[in-house]
Design a binder for these strands. Sequence first.
RNA 1: CGGAGCGUGGCGUAGUCCGGUAGCGCACUGCAAUGGGGUUGCAGGGGUCGCAGGUUCAAAUCCUGUCGCUCCGACCA
Length: 487
Amino acid sequence: MSKKLPNIDSDISSWYTEVVTKAGLADYGPVKGTMVIKPYGFQLWENVKDIFDDMIKKTGHTNAYFPLLIPKSFLAKEAEHVEGFAKECAIVTHTRLKSEKGEIIVDPDSRLEEEVIIRPTSETVIWSMYKKWIQSYRDLPILINQWANVVRWEMRTRLFLRTTEFLWQEGHTAHQTKEEAQKETLDILELYKKLAEEYLAIPVFTGLKTDAEKFAGADKTYCIEAMMLDKRALQAGTSHNLGQNFAKAFDVKFQTDSNSEQFVWATSWGISTRLIGGVILAHGDKNGLRMPPKIAPIQTVLIPIFRSEDQKGEIKKYINPLEAELKSIGVRYFIDWSDSSPGFKFNEWELKGVPVRIEIGPKDVESKKLVMARRDNGEKFSISKNELSNKIKTMLEEIQNNLFNQAKEFRNENTHDVKTYDEFKNIINNGGFVRCGWDGDSETELKIKEETKATIRCIPFNEDPKGLKCVYSGKKAKHEVIYAKAY
RNA sequence: CGGAGCGUGGCGUAGUCCGGUAGCGCACUGCAAUGGGGUUGCAGGGGUCGCAGGUUCAAAUCCUGUCGCUCCGACCA
C-alpha cells in the first residue's frame, strides 16, 4: 500500500476506489460487480438508514418484507417495466448441483418449470400481494416500506455507485385518488431532500424526470440530483408516481364509498447505498474522506500521545473523565490506543474522515488542556479540558454546516445558465451543470445525449421557461431544464 | 458483444523480447529504541509465477489451448 492517494483533481476515479478500500468502507466481492460493505462503511449506511427510517415512520409508514424471488411472468405484466429491467436480470433456472467426474455441475434434471428472477425492484411482487389485500376504500391507503437488497446485472460497476447487488429502501404505497398519490410522491421527495441536505450535507436539485429518464412503469418520476466533486451529476434518490399502471397490470381494484369500482393509485420511491458513494464524492479531499458529523460512524477520535508505560497510565487517568463526558453528551467517539506513531494515526483517521481529532499528551496533562483538530478545514488549536463538552458540540455543528456550505457553493459556482449550444458544449465538456431551455421534444434530448453524453437531470420545480429558447433547436422552450453528465 | 491490456507471496510490481535454481516496495511477526504529522535499526515468516498440455537436459520466460480480470466502447429506472 502506498502512502499517498491518487490525485483527487486529475484522477478522481482512482482516488475514489482507493479511498473506499483504504478507509475500510468496502471491498470487492468474489463475483464481478459485488461488494462487501465492511464495518466502517456499514455503520455509515446504518446511520443514514436509521435517520430515514425514523422520518418515514413519523409520517405513517411501516416496514415489511417481501420475497427476494419473483416469478418470471410477474415482470412481464407491466409492459414498460419489463422493457426497463429485462436486460439486467439475474435468473434462477435450476435448483440443484451434482458431482460429475469430480466436478460440481448444475443438475440438468433440476430445471425449473417457470424460472424465477431475483428482484431488481419489488413493484411486481408487492402488487401481486396488494391485489389480495385491497378490496375496499377502507383498506387504503397502504403505506409500506421495505429495507432490502436487489440485484441488477449491470455491465459496468463501481463500489457503492453502481453494484450488481445493492441495499436500499423501497416504499410502495397504494391510494384511493390520483391527488393523494401525487402528494405522497412529493412528500417523500421532500424527505429525500431533507436527508441529503440536512444530514448528508449534500445540496440537491429537485424536480421531474423527462419521459426518457423516468422509471420504467411510472407516470412521473421525481428525483434529487447532486453534484459530485468532478462536477458530474449523481441521481441520489427517486420518487415515482406510478398512476394506475401497476394496479391495472395486477388488476387491483377497490370499491369506493359510493360503491363504484376503481383501480388503485400507486407510488414507489427509493434511496440506496449509492448515497454512500455520494457522500464520498461530494465531500472528499486530497487526504481522504470528510464525514458529515451527523452520519459519521465516529465523530471524534482521541489520540493519546505518550512515551513510557508510566505516561500511558497518566494519560489514561486524564482521559477517563473526558471519555465519560463524551459518552454523557452522546458523541460517538473512539480512543486509538494502538501502538502506531501519532503521525500515522493522524493520517489514518483523516483518511477515514473523522470530523474532529483530539490529541492528548503529556503537555496537555500538565496544562489541563487538550488539542482539537478539525477535519473539514485542518484548523488545530488547544483548549482547556473544561471546555470539551461545549466545544465539541458546537464544532460538530459547524463542521456539518461548513461541509454543506462548501458543497453548495461549489455546486452554484459550477451551475451555469446558458443560451447557445456552443456555450452548452463548452460547459459540459469542462464539467458542470447547465441550466437552459428545452423544446420538450424527446428527439432533441436524444440528439444532445448522442452529441455530448449529457442528459437532462431534471426539470426543476423552480423552472422559469418564459422567454427561453431551446438550446438545441432554437424553438420556444417548453421547459427550463438542468443538463449534466451523470454517473 | 467489438477494441486494448493484464494474470508472479496479502497488496503493488521487476524479471518474459535474448529459457539456466524467483527479486523489490508496502503489509505481516519478533526484539530494541522512538513517539505532538505517515519513526528507525536489526532479525524473521510467507510465492512455483491463473490453469491444462506441449517443446527442452532445463520453462515465470517459447508454443497451443483454456479460464479469469481490468480499461475503452455499446448498456445503465
